[in-house]
Every structure is written in structure tokens, then in C-alpha cells.
Design a protein around this nucleic acid. Structure first.
Length: 773
DNA sequence: CGCACGTGGTTTTTT
DNA sequence: ACCACGTGCG
């Protein structure tokens, strides 16, 4: 056996007998560039990793290599990703390569790692030990509540916009007082921003961007802590570096000390998140700031056939200011890209369904097929067609487990038990399930709390004490004379509401004391039962019965999640679980089918791959999206999005568009996407006749009813019966469905998928074909 | 308190 | 067309 050469292997050899062998096997199968990246000496590097070039493999192998050669201990590694999924993937692959204990390894998302750091130094970060994390929804309700208290006009200042302003500023690394505000409008927003931060601080909560900013400030202000981490993390590795925002990059720079090497992996061509603050410029800045001498390019693609890659390369070459990269593959060209022009969105969906049925009959698994679209609304018409055809599918996106109403309610009980300063949590549950505490009582609590600048909980508890002292029953037992006046009415109201509030305070107190010593799943169980949540959903009848049953199932699932969490995590405290719930909102949807089609936005498809991909709705205004036209660099980002979409396909790629589609409740007519024109013609196979192609490009707005698509097959007799999806009968082959049309006049041919005889091309002029209803 | 009805918005999204 | 949110009534 060839020995791994030199010193490093010997060092490893002394530490662990099996490692030299592992070491060489680590590198086997890597191409020269991958190997160069993996075995880079201790220096900062930028790895420009194209789609499907083995990016994750390089990243994980680099870590394994560093550890196995003894260059660094697991303790000295910091590896950062954007999603929990990516972090899990990295950890799984790494532990498969190296028998190491993952404890002490800092592999996680930016937010997860910042959380970890802030927990460890909560005092220095000026946070309570049990600080909780607001997800975007929590943040929005906190902002709405604050704006109400500050009397901010929510028409002039939409809360959503305010939220973007606050998060956006923090992601630039800016506190309220650092934001430039030259006009009264912005100054007001800055005021709200400042107040919002104060409110969060009072309530002991942090939002997502605060996790990062607070961690950044901790490091920049506290030299001892900063030096500790700089000394510790000899190797910092970043995944999807093109997606980092300014604050994340600053954070990385602060963590990287004199002895640290930053290993950044990214692809500027796949930067599709500028709209949420991602700053591709970080790649250029990195090469300057960290004196990166040569950028390693991973350009060999292991995913797609040649024609698909050529199309992707051609498209992306239209973007200016790229770092420059050209994907190639050892595979052959493979199939041409199939382009389909449909008269309507419904027919586009029909075509897709018939193609899928064809693929299925050829043995392609449904889960190997993806239907991609630019915006979520487009899934509806596709879903409709799939349901009709009885094809199982799974839509990605939408509500996730920990974001569900019933789960948020349950967690709010736990949050309030843990931290009575959490007004968000209190407001969510003080009257859910309903316990007679209405808007009026809550207002009174808020007034009292504001007066003492105390949390709502304290006001509620004080009310409880007052009721006990003065006797809550007094006002109720003495019927008040009519002349008693408003003051007495108020005190009566307070007393009556006080009773209810008292009961609520007592409930929380009793939940707390009853669960003090219990393990997490039992705490959960107890709280679900005694909060009245379970009873509430159980009592639901009528139209909401089904929904309530599902919610009960989810609550049950929450107990399971807690059990799992306890098994998988060292720190199984309630605080840790609540952080987990905020940072990892869980799966989008339960009950995934074994073999189901994947429906998702192009954004959601990043990082995934499929045998066959349908890119749908390729119309000017939809993809590229209309709104991108007004944004600087908007079209380039749309093109990168298209590039991502194309490079998801391994073997077959469909590009489809419709002449008309239902949009915002209205039929709108569009042109073929300009991106189609950017693809080399010799790579495309137009399934619709070429005449139709030209007309699609030339036509601006042509309502289809007065000018049917110039398909030669259809030109002879207005609206032709021969179209995709049409069921037909053939005297010899039996029943089938038209899946393709081609040629014109006497050359016109149709492709039919026959139920028994399989797929055949038939010349319309000769074939004895009859349409079937 | 809870439901009915009206209104406005509608690219992409992780943490 | 559809959904989420807010207001007003019973």
C-alpha cells in the first residue's frame, strides 16, 4: 500500500493506528483541485465551487483531513453553515469518516453558534441566563405591540416594513443610533428601533439578527473572550460563503485571529439571496482581507449531462462581474433540453403530467422528479393537475412544525414559566384557551405594567396580591348603587378581571411548581394537559373538528419531539429545548410520501438534485420576475436563479411556458422568458413546432381566443383536437394519450402513450386516430 | 367572545 | 383567485 507521505502521516500514526490508512482513503477519489483544497496548508482560502462539484465533500473531507493529520484537534474547528440541514449533513458525513466525538466540535449555523456562544457568556453579553429567541413571527408581534404602545401609525409605518428595517440594520451591523436618519420618517423608524431593542432587553428575548449582532459585540468589546476564541479556532470553515451578509462576515473576521485560517467555500453564480442581505462582495473582500493568493476553482461537475451544463454555462455567461468559472463534465452530452410552449397554464400543467406519466412508465421514480417554479402561487395549477392524474407529490415551503399555532401556544406556556418577563408569551396565552380575560383587562394590565416599567406578569401578580388583600369578593358581593360613578365601576371591573387574572397567575405558578423536578417530556405532557390546551382542542366540534384533531396530533408530536431532544442532546434543559424550537423550526410538512414528486420554488431547490427537472412558468415577468426589473442587479440575480434551476437536473430538463395564465384572479398574457433566448439553440428540442417558437418571441400581447397558437397542427382547422393530454383511440394500439406534437401539414406527427402498446410516434395523415372524451 | 364580512396585497426565505 | 388580517355586530 502506498503510504500517505511525510511528516503529517507519521504524527497521525502516533496518535491513532488506524488513521494513516483512513487518511489516504480520505483523499482517494478526489480530483486534483478537490485534493488541493482538502490538503491546503494552514492558510486562508477561497474555494469557488460550482454546482455539483462536490462542495460539501470537500468541506467535510478538509475537516477530517485536518483532524486526522493532527494539524488541529476537533476542539480547534469552527464550521459554519446557513441551514440546520447543511450542518447536520456535514456532521453526519464527518462522523462517518472519522470516529470522533462530536462534542466540542463547533459545527452549526451562524445563529446556532452565536446562541451557543451567548449562552456560555450570558453575563458578559448582558443577557439573562434563560434568554429566549424570537422567531420572525414573535418579532413581528413584539413590534406591533410596541408600535401600539408608542402610538405609531401603522399605516404610515407598516409593521412588516419596520421589521425589515430593524433586521436589515442589524444585519449591516448597525444599532439604532448608528443608522443614518436625515428625514423625520426615518428618524421615527430609528426611534421605534431603539425602543424595540430596549423592550427586548427588558423582556429577556433576542431576535435572530440580535443573536449575531450581540455575539459580534461581545467579541469586539471583550478582549479576553475574543482572544480565547481566536486562539482556539485555528480553522474556520464556511459553507455557502456567497450568502453571508455584512454582519456575518464581520463576525468571521473578528473570530479569525492571527493563527486562524479561513476556508470559505462558495459560488458567486449561485448567489440568490441578495434580497435578504446576502453580500456577494464578501468573496472579493475575503481575498483582500485574508490575503488569499489563489482561488481554487472546482469546475468538474459530477451531476449533470453535458448539454444541461452547456446550457447553464451559456446562460450565466451573460452576467457581468463574475469571478469566472466554467463547469465541465466527463459525461456525454445526453439529451437535449425539452422546451414546451403551452397555450395556457392549465395546459402547461397537463403536458407536465403526461410527461411524468411517461417517465413513470419508463421506471423513473417520482421522487427523482422536481417541478420548479419562481413563485409559490404557481404550485396551485400544477397541484390541481397532479391530483386529477392521481400522482402523489409533496410541496415544499409553507408552515413548519414549530410555527404552528398550537405549538406556539404550548411553547408560550413554557416560555412564560421559564421567564416571566416574556410579555410576548404572556399575551399569547393569557386568554387562550379563553378564560374571560378580554381586551379591557389586558389593557389595564398593560397600563399598570407601563407605570411601573415592569413586565405584564408582575402587574398581574400585583393585581393578585391586591385582590387578596382587599378581598376580591367585596365589590362583587355588594351590589353597587347606580350612582356609584365611574371610579367604582373601574374598581369593580378590576376586581372581577382580577379574579380571572389571579386564576391565570395561579395556573402558571402551579404548572411551574408541579413540573420543577420533571424531565422535559413530562413537563411538556403536564403543561399540555393542565393548561387546558388539550381540552380546548378536544372540545372542538363541527367544521373545526378535523382541524382540531390535527392540532391534537401535533401537540402529541411535540411531546415526541421533546423526548427525541432529550435523547439527542447533552443539555436537555427546557431553555435548550426552547432555543432549539426557535432556531430549528422543523420540517415543512409531515407525512412525506415514499415516492412523491417534489414541488418547490427555485430558491428551495438550491443544493438539491433530481433525475428530471421541470422549470415551469418561463415567461417574461414571471421568471425573470417583474419586480426584479426595478432592482439594481435584479436581472442578474434572476439569471443566477435560472442557473441554479438548470443545474438541479442530472439527466433530463424540461423548460415550459404558457401564453396565458391566471394571475391575481385575472388572465394575463405573457411572452416567453428572455432566458430561453439565452440558451444555445442547438441544445434545445422544441416540442412545440418551431413556428410557434418564433411567434412566441415576436408576439407581445395576443389574446389566445382571437389568435390561436400558430401551431401547424392546429392551423388547418381551428381549435385542433390534437393536443397534449388528449385521450385518443387507435384501431390497432387501443387507448392512449397524446404526449407530444411535432411537425406541420402532412408531416404532422403525434406521440401517443398507449395504455397497452406503450409510446408511439404516429403520422396524423395516416394514423387512424380518434379522440376520446 | 366569536363569527361574518370586507379589504388589501400578492417574489424569493433561513435563522 | 386566494389568503391573512382587521373591524363591527350579535
Amino acid at each position: 500500500m502506498k503510504r500517505a507521505r511525510g511528516f503529517s502521516a507519521n504524527v497521525a500514526n502516533q496518535r491513532c493506528g488506524i488513521i494513516p490508512c483512513m487518511n489516504s482513503s480520505l483523499l482517494s477519489g478526489l480530483n486534483p483541485e478537490q485534493r488541493q483544497a482538502v490538503t491546503l496548508p494552514h492558510q486562508s482560502a477561497l474555494i469557488l465551487a460550482g454546482a455539483g462539484s462536490g462542495k460539501t465533500r470537500v468541506l467535510t473531507t478538509r475537516i477530517a483531513w485536518l483532524i486526522s493529520t493532527g494539524a488541529v484537534s476537533p476542539h480547534g474547528i469552527l464550521a459554519v453553515t446557513f441551514t440546520n440541514k447543511a450542518a447536520r449533513e456535514m456532521l453526519t458525513r464527518l462522523t462517518a469518516m472519522l470516529p470522533i466525538n462530536s462534542r466540542g466540535l463547533w459545527i452549526g449555523t451562524f445563529h446556532g453558534l452565536c446562541n451557543r456562544m451567548l449562552r456560555a457568556h450570558y453575563r458578559e453579553a448582558n443577557l439573562p441566563q434563560t434568554f429566549q429567541i424570537l422567531d420572525s413571527g414573535d418579532q413581528l408581534s413584539a413590534i406591533k405591540r410596541l408600535m401600539k404602545a408608542m402610538n405609531v401609525d401603522d399605516e404610515k409605518y407598516p409593521p412588516r416594513e419596520m421589521q425589515n428595517f430593524i433586521s436589515g440594520s442589524k444585519e449591516q451591523g448597525l444599532r439604532a443610533h448608528e443608522v443614518e436618519a436625515y428625514d423625520p420618517y426615518t428618524r421615527r423608524k430609528v426611534e421605534v428601533f431603539a425602543e424595540y431593542d430596549a423592550q427586548c432587553q427588558r423582556e429577556g428575548v433576542v431576535d435572530f439578527s440580535e443573536l449575531l449582532l450581540r455575539s459580534y459585540e461581545l467579541l469586539s468589546r471583550n478582549a479576553a473572550i475574543r482572544e480565547h476564541y481566536q486562539e482556539r479556532f485555528r480553522h474556520i470553515l464556511v459553507d455557502e460563503f456567497q450568502d453571508t451578509n455584512k454582519l456575518q462576515y464581520q463576525w468571521l473576521k473578528l473570530l479569525a485571529g492571527r493563527h486562524s485560517a479561513l476556508f470559505a467555500v462558495g459560488d458567486d453564480d449561485q448567489s440568490i439571496y441578495a434580497f435578504r442581505g446576502a453580500h456577494v462582495g464578501n468573496m472579493q473582500e475575503l481575498t483582500r482581507d485574508f490575503h488569499v493568493e489563489n482561488i481554487i476553482k472546482l469546475e468538474q461537475n459530477y451531476r449533470s449531462h453535458g448539454n444541461i451544463l452547456d446550457a447553464a454555462n451559456a446562460l450565466i455567461s451573460n452576467n457581468r462581474s463574475r469571478l469566472g468559472k466554467n463547469l465541465w463534465t466527463a459525461e456525454n452530452g445526453g439529451e437535449l433540453l425539452r422546451v414546451y410552449e403551452a397555450p395556457t397554464d392549465v395546459e402547461e400543467a397537463g403536458f407536465i403530467v403526461s410527461e411524468i406519466q411517461l417517465l413513470k412508465s419508463e421506471g423513473v421514480n417520482l421522487k427523482e422528479i422536481a417541478l420548479l417554479y419562481r413563485s409559490n402561487a404557481q404550485s396551485r395549477v400544477l397541484e390541481h393537475a397532479l391530483v386529477s392524474a392521481g400522482l402523489s407529490y409533496r410541496v415544499y415551503g409553507g408552515l413548519r412544525f414549530f410555527e404552528r399555532q398550537e405549538i406556539k401556544h404550548a411553547l408560550a406556556y413554557l416560555r412564560l414559566m421559564e421567564n416571566t418577563g416574556d410579555d410576548n408569551a404572556l399575551l399569547r396565552i393569557i386568554n387562550f384557551p379563553t378564560r374571560g380575560i378580554g381586551a379591557r383587562s389586558i389593557e389595564q394590565l398593560q397600563e399598570a405594567a407601563k407605570m411601573n416599567s415592569a413586565p405584564l406578569w408582575d402587574a398581574a401578580a400585583a393585581l393578585t396580591r391586591r385582590c387578596e388583600a382587599s378581598g376580591a369578593g367585596e365589590a362583587a358581593s355588594h351590589p353597587l348603587p347606580q350612582s356609584a360613578g365611574p371610579a367604582s365601576n373601574v374598581s369593580r371591573d378590576v376586581a372581577r378581571a382580577g379574579g380571572k387574572v389571579t386564576a391565570f397567575v395561579a395556573l402558571i405558578e402551579s404548572l411551574r411548581s408541579a413540573t420543577r423536578e420533571l424531565p422535559l417530556p413530562e413537563i411538556m405532557d403536564h403543561v399540555l394537559e393542565h393548561s387546558g390546551l388539550i381540552a380546548y382542542y378536544r372540545n372542538e366540534t363541527g367544521a373545526k373538528k378535523r382541524e382540531a384533531e390535527e392540532r391534537l396530533e401535533n401537540l402529541n408530536e411535540l411531546v415526541n419531539a421533546a423526548t427525541l431532544f432529550v435523547h439527542e442532546n447533552e443539555d436537555d434543559s427546557l431553555t435548550a429545548f426552547l432555543s432549539h424550537a426557535s432556531l430549528e423550526a422543523g420540517e415543512h410538512q409531515a407525512g412525506d410520501q415514499d415516492d412523491a414528486l417534489h414541488l418547490m420554488t427555485v430558491h428551495a431547490a438550491k443544493g438539491l438534485e433530481f433525475h428530471t427537472v421541470f422549470i415551469t412558468g418561463l415567461e417574461e415577468g414571471l421568471f425573470p420576475h417583474q419586480n426584479s426589473q426595478n432592482v439594481d442587479g435584479g436581472l442578474d440575480e434572476e439569471r443566477r436563479l435560472m442557473y441554479v434551476a438548470i443545474t438541479r437536473a442530472r439527466r433530463r430538463l424540461y423548460l415550459s411556458f404558457a401564453q396565458s395564465r391566471m394571475l391575481h384572479g385575472q388572465v394575463s398574457y405573457g411572452m416567453a422568458s428572455s432566458f430561453l433566448r439565452e440558451l444555445p439553440e442547438n441544445l434545445l428540442h422544441w416540442i412545440t413546432p418551431r413556428v410557434a417558437q418564433r411567434s412566441a418571441f415576436a408576439r407581445s400581447f395576443t389574446p389566445q381566443h382571437d389568435a390561436p397558437p400558430a401551431s401547424p397542427v392546429q392551423r388547418s382547422s381551428a381549435p385542433s383536437i390534437w393536443r397534449s393530454g388528449q385521450a385518443v383511440f387507435h384501431t390497432k394500439f387501443g387507448e392512449g394519450m397524446i404526449v407530444n406534437l411535432e411537425g406541420s401539414g402532412s408531416d404532422a406527427r403525434v406521440q401517443v402513450n398507449f395504455r397497452k402498446a406503450g409510446v408511439k410516434w404516429l403520422a396524423l395523415e395516416y394514423a387512424k386516430l380518434t379522440p376520446v372524451d
